[in-house]
């Protein structure tokens, strides 16, 4: 069996005196779509921020067989990780096209960038219509599309998505999740953080359930979706 793309051992994240993540282990295999689900404040976002080096953390993070050790965020990005942050984090006073260019910041292959820009506009035709518009004028759903498209512009080997459904209308949520499934089917490895467990379990292959900074359950999504504990706590049944 080949080694997983990402393997995390005993990851801890603390802010001041608060232990947001208390030593968790998990893996993401090549080409897999894995989700982290759990209630608000369970430590899911902190886990992603720790992986990206945005917050101080302890533990062993191995990416593609090499350790990411206390590297700066921009260096981690250069290694092939990308995060679509919670709340989208688009540059409101840059145009849509400039936002996408920022996504390709670490790349120098102009032809490849142009090809990927074409692909992004194919994936999200709405963005093509609004390419010269300031990104701050887009609707919430369009901003989420832009954030995902921008992350893809860096051709990440592992894409981390933090709450992509947050604050969006149901129709837009469905559209975003269809896109996530498309991206996964193209072979991009994804780690998805989501409060909406029903959605996440439907689209992912495996899941980890987080509670108070620890992983309490893990397994294939089909099994977890039938687990009475998960059904009661996260699927509202």
């Amino acid at each position: 069996m080949t080694a997983p793309l990402l393997s995390v051992h005993d990851l801890k994240v603390a802010y001041g005196g608060i232990h947001a993540v208390r030593g968790i282990d998990f893996e993401v295999g090549r080409g897999e779509l894995v989700c982290l689900i759990g209630a608000n404040g369970a430590g899911k976002s902190s886990t992603l921020k720790g992986l990206m080096g945005l917050v101080a953390h302890e533990g062993i993070i191995e990416f593609d067989g090499e350790r990411l050790h206390h590297q700066a965020t921009h260096a981690i990005v250069a290694r092939g990780l990308a995060l679509v942050p919670e709340g989208r984090g688009i540059f409101g006073r840059l145009t849509v096209a400039e936002n996408l260019d920022m996504g390709a910041y670490t790349r120098r292959d102009r032809a490849g960038i142009r090809a990927d820009l074409g692909r992004a506009f194919e994936l999200f035709p709405r963005l093509a219509e609004r390419r010269v518009q300031l990104a701050g004028t887009l609707s919430g759903g369009e901003q989420q599309m832009l954030a995902i498209a921008r992350a893809l512009m860096g051709r990440p080997r592992l894409l981390l998505l933090d709450e992509p459904s947050m604050g969006l209308a149901p129709l837009m949520v469905r559209k975003i999740y269809e896109t996530i499934a498309d991206i996964a089917s193209e072979g991009v490895t994804l780690l998805l953080v989501e409060q909406n467990a029903r959605l996440a379990l439907k689209v992912s292959q495996r899941a980890y359930v987080m509670e108070s900074g620890a992983v309490t359950l893990s397994g294939a999504c089909a099994e977890l979706a039938n687990d009475p504990q998960v059904r009661a706590a996260y699927l509202g049944e």
């Binding site: 921009h74 990005v77 942050p85 540059f91 006073r93 920022m102």
Partner: peptide, 15 residues
């Protein structure tokens, strides 16, 4: 310009 808007997101772009 990106850094002026958000240092954290600029870092996430590899800046």
């Amino acid at each position: 310009r990106a850094t002026a808007q958000s240092r954290e997101v600029a870092e996430l772009m590899g800046v």
